[in-house]
């Protein structure tokens, strides 16, 4: 819109204080896409090149839905800002390997239509769009989405339980080392903690995401995980297992740090991260589901306006 205007002479119309980011919205979106590259590579290494079709379907249907809704609402079609691509990639990476492509497409449509555009598009969504899509798929196709495959580089791989499901239903504790590298069954991009950490640290160091949410989530997980581990190390898993299991690492660096659906204030981010970890531990250890990162983040997304309200800094000189 204002590409034609010389930026040096642009008039700031918002009220002070003004804060400037190193990156524009478009640049940071594409940087997140870049940071997802290690996870995509790990998905290809551990689950085969065929898995790219899931990511491709997801991204294409996210873009198509976004374009269709923008067209129907007679708004400017802004596909190149990369936000729909992020949603598509994130959704694809949290789906199980060899997931039905039709269902992937449905999930992508729901993620963009119900997760983002219904609230008014980028910047207005309450919940993380990719997680909305995943939650819908979890409710719509409960069998398909919990069919996990062992990573053995082949197309028709053997189905096996994820470390968390094995812990919950068979009381078997998986070794931590393969969970760090990613050689376990699980969602496409979630298994390799290493790839996720590379991408996440990249985002933190170039200043695209704030360090407070990931750090408070990891510290929170270590604290709450340790409490139960100290109470009874036989029944409850070690905090490091909890840290590396399931989608916790992926959720920490890519889902909870979503700028739109996480708190604005520094204190709020810390509270947000701690509470997500607390809910994750509660769901994993006492809930009916083996994994709860998705629901924990969605639940805390709903609390973000409240957190913002109670942690907003006092205006200097204002009457209490």
């Amino acid at each position: 819109m204002d590409n034609a205007v010389n930026p040096t002479y642009r008039l700031e119309l918002s009220s002070s204080p003004h804060i400037h980011s190193r990156w524009t919205v478009k640049q940071s979106m594409w940087l997140v896409n870049l940071a997802l590259l290690p996870s995509i590579i790990s998905a290809v290494i551990f689950f085969g090149i065929f898995q790219l079709s899931i990511l491709f379907t997801s991204v294409v249907f996210c873009l198509l839905t976004e374009a269709a809704i923008k067209y129907l609402r007679k708004r400017q079609i802004t596909l190149m800002d990369g936000s729909a691509v992020i949603t598509g990639l994130l959704l694809g990476l949290i789906l199980p390997p060899n997931f039905s492509l039709v269902s992937t497409a449905i999930g992508a449509v729901v993620a963009i239509a119900l997760g983002k555009e219904i609230f008014g598009g980028l910047g207005n969504n309450i919940f993380n769009p990719a997680l909305v899509g995943r939650a819908f798929l979890q409710a719509a196709f409960p069998v398909g989405i919990t069919t996990w495959h062992q990573p053995n580089y082949a197309l028709d791989s053997v189905s096996s339980a994820t470390p968390l499901a094995a812990l919950k239903f068979d009381k078997v504790l998986t070794d931590i080392t393969p969970m760090f590298w990613g050689n376990i069954s699980g969602s496409l991009g979630e298994t390799s903690a290493l790839a996720v950490i590379i991408g996440g640290l990249f985002l933190i160091f170039i200043g695209v995401v704030n360090w407070r949410v990931p750090v408070s989530m990891i510290v929170g997980m270590l604290i709450f995980g340790s409490i139960f581990w100290i109470i009874d190390p036989v029944i409850y898993p070690s905090p490091f297992f909890q840290l590396l299991a399931g989608g916790f690492m992926f959720g920490t660096f890519f889902m909870a740090t979503d700028w739109v659906s996480s708190p604005l204030t520094s204190r709020g981010m810390l509270i947000f991260g701690f509470l997500i970890s607390f809910i994750v531990v509660i769901i994993r250890l006492f809930g009916g589901l083996p994994e709860g990162v998705m629901y924990a983040i969605l639940l805390m997304n709903a609390f973000v306006p409240l957190i913002n309200k109670y942690t907003s800094p006092k205006i200097f000189g204002a009457e209490k």
Binding site: V102, A139, A140, F141
Partner: peptide, 14 residues
Amino acid sequence: DPMIVMILPAGAFL
């Protein structure tokens, strides 16, 4: 593939 969510309460709200 029938979407089970639609015959659950969540489907009604949606």
